[in-house]
């Protein structure tokens, strides 16, 4: 993603953070790093980043690293995973074995790991995973593949659209508490909100 793709190339939501409450500022600030990985090995981090690059269509290393850090944290979280299909392993096991399986499938087909195959090939793998169309070896049933895609996508996209650089890209006003929004009607904006640059 280049800033030039944004309709709001001059907007930086982080420039507004002095207006945010301290708790939110602290939470959002951590997404800029540095990150301490507690579970994922560097190889696993790279695999997650390669997958995230396709799922989120994101190419900035800093944002991809945050996404991997979020996955790392979630896989170690003592909270539950809200819902799981019977017969599908718990999230941590599913994701860790799943990225390993993606790597093996890539090696079988292209003699290279998932990160090293071409972008179109990575994309094709993920499109097949979404519908359960990858080889059903080692217990990777159609349903388990679909669940892997869904859990991975949920984690990756949640993290991606929580990164303040992405908020700036899309012209999101951000946390805006305690000040809130005064002008909410169609066509109105508060003075500090992102404004589209004419002609962009």
């Amino acid at each position: 993603m280049m800033r030039s793709e944004s309709l709001y190339p001059d907007y930086d939501v982080l420039a507004l953070q002095d207006e945010w409450d301290a708790h939110t500022r602290q939470i959002v600030g951590k997404r800029l790093g540095p990150f301490q990985f507690k579970l994922l090995t560097p190889e696993q981090q790279d695999l997650i980043k390669a997958v995230a690059r396709q799922l989120a269509y994101e190419h900035r290393e800093e944002v991809l690293t945050w996404i991997a850090a979020h996955v790392d944290e979630q896989l170690l979280s003592p909270l539950g995973e809200a819902q799981r299909r019977p017969g599908v392993p718990p999230q941590k096991e599913l994701i860790l074995s799943g990225i390993e399986a993606l790597n093996s499938w890539a090696k079988e087909k292209f003699f290279k790991g998932f990160q090293s195959i071409r972008q179109e090939q990575q994309l094709e793998f993920l499109q097949l995973l979404e519908v359960g169309g990858l080889p059903q070896d080692h217990g990777w049933t159609v349903e388990k593949q679909k669940e892997l895609f869904k859990k991975l996508t949920g984690l990756v996209i949640s993290a991606h659209y929580s990164h303040p650089w992405v908020w700036s890209d899309i012209g999101y006003g951000g946390p805006a508490y305690p000040r809130g929004y005064v002008r909410v009607e169609l066509g109105l904006t508060d003075p500090w909100e992102p404004k589209q640059v004419p002609g962009s």
């Binding site: 409450d21 708790h23 939110t24 939470i27 979020h70 949640s158 929580s162 946390p175 508490y177």
Partner: peptide, 12 residues
């Protein structure tokens, strides 16, 4: 004030 935040990811 201490537990909530203006943030979707945190709220999960």
């Amino acid at each position: 004030q201490a537990d909530f935040a203006s943030d979707e990811l945190h709220a999960q």
